[in-house]
Amino acid sequence: MIEMTKRIRDLEVSEHLRTLTHERFGTRGRFTLLERASGIGASKWKNFYYKKQEATTEMIAFWIEKYPEDESFLMTGKIPPRKDGYPFGTIPPHVRQTETISDRLNWVIVEWTSPRGAALFEYLEERSKHQIAAEEWKKTVLGEQAPTAAMVEIVCKARPYFAAWITCGSEIDSYDQVDPTCTRSIKTWRSNLLKQLMSAPSEDPEK
């Protein structure tokens, strides 16, 4: 009975991990990207994804280390509730996503963009007007190199209210900037944003 329960749990964790690999790494180039990110061979990820084997301890350990915010869903299938009123397009940054400028930049890229995997890197290349190759974006997102100043500039232009947080990583007091980890900062930012909207002159329908 205990062995059967463990087997069912392993199957469930494997299905959760397949879902996460699709969401995080997209379709094209998925297994190569997974190999680069994890050090686990692409063939192993491919066999796992197509259900020729279940998730290994090594795969699970990598995922939890790389994406600690996914641990609850991976292990239980339950998604932690979003904080009430959290205004951004993804869950609040985990502590490891705030340690370096690379971590913060990557969180904002996820908050900003919808493509995943190879499509994400191509999208970022397009947003840079082909000044920064998809391969360079790939290296940065996968943590193989630090972002360049040009990369930071592009992401900050797309999400200007995160610019100070990306570059400084500290609580933000400026009225037009926000620290997505800080409830007080978010509240202040939203309040100031509302004031701006309320004070903006309405368009004259006759013009």
Rank of each mutant, 00 (worst) to 15 (best):
M1S: 14
E3G: 00
M4A: 14
K6V: 13
R9I: 05
V13N: 00
T19S: 12
R24M: 12
T27I: 12
F31N: 02
L34Y: 03
R36T: 04
R36H: 06
A37T: 00
S38A: 09
G41N: 11
S43N: 12
W45S: 02
K46I: 00
K46W: 11
K52F: 06
Q53D: 01
M59H: 03
I60P: 00
F62D: 02
W63N: 02
K66Y: 07
P68C: 08
E69S: 12
D70M: 08
F73R: 02
M75D: 05
M75H: 03
M75P: 02
T76A: 06
K78E: 14
P81D: 12
R82P: 05
D84Y: 09
D84C: 00
P92I: 12
Q97R: 10
L105P: 05
E111H: 10
W112H: 08
W112R: 04
S114Q: 13
R116W: 03
L120D: 00
E122Q: 13
L124C: 02
L124F: 05
E136I: 11
K139W: 10
V141L: 07
V141Q: 01
Q145I: 12
Q145T: 15
T148C: 10
A163H: 11
W165L: 10
E171I: 15
I172L: 13
D179A: 11
C182G: 08
W189I: 13
L193F: 08
Q196A: 15
P201A: 07
S202Y: 09
P205F: 08
